[in-house]
């Protein structure tokens, strides 16, 4: 049996702990691709992940995102990207990736004790 993969957001390739593997794509052969939706809620703010949806192409994905995610003025700008193009870090690597930051308290301003007489710093 060949494992055919379907991509979900945050998917990161083969892993024994992955939950998004399914062994057959028969059931999805007619499905429109999955898109991730990012919305800027206000001029000056970042686009933020809002959710996902299915659409045949990018134009339809933006139209659907307008209907599904911005019915109450939640957005002024929409980005869509096909979910299969998103690459993500593996949670199994979390220790190796993020632990080294833990013991570098000197990167924070509160690490430095200065006399109260010093103002505006």
């Amino acid at each position: 049996m060949i494992a055919i993969r379907k991509f979900y957001y945050g998917d990161y390739g083969e892993s024994k702990n992955g939950t998004a593997d399914i062994s057959s794509s028969n059931k999805t052969k007619n499905e429109w691709p999955l898109w991730e939706v990012f919305i800027r809620s206000k001029q000056g703010l970042d686009h933020k992940h809002a959710g996902s949806l299915h659409a045949a192409d990018a134009a339809m994905a933006i139209e659907n995102a307008r209907d599904v995610y911005t019915r109450r003025m939640e957005g002024l700008s929409i980005w869509v990207v096909e979910s299969k193009y998103i690459h993500a870090s593996n949670p199994d690597d979390a220790d190796a990736l993020y632990d080294p930051a833990n013991d570098k308290a000197y990167r924070h301003p509160t690490f430095y004790n200065l006399p109260d007489a010093v103002k505006h710093m």
């Binding site: 379907k6 998004a20 593997d21 399914i22 959710g51 019915r71």
Partner: peptide, 26 residues
């Protein structure tokens, strides 16, 4: 507007379920 909201709610939830490895068509 209410019925349209219900459709939206269905879509949010289907997407959430899809992250667990089941497809929309299934």
């Amino acid at each position: 507007a209410k019925v349209q909201d219900e459709a939206g709610h269905g879509l949010y939830l289907y997407s959430a379920a899809e992250t667990l490895g089941i497809s929309r068509d299934e």
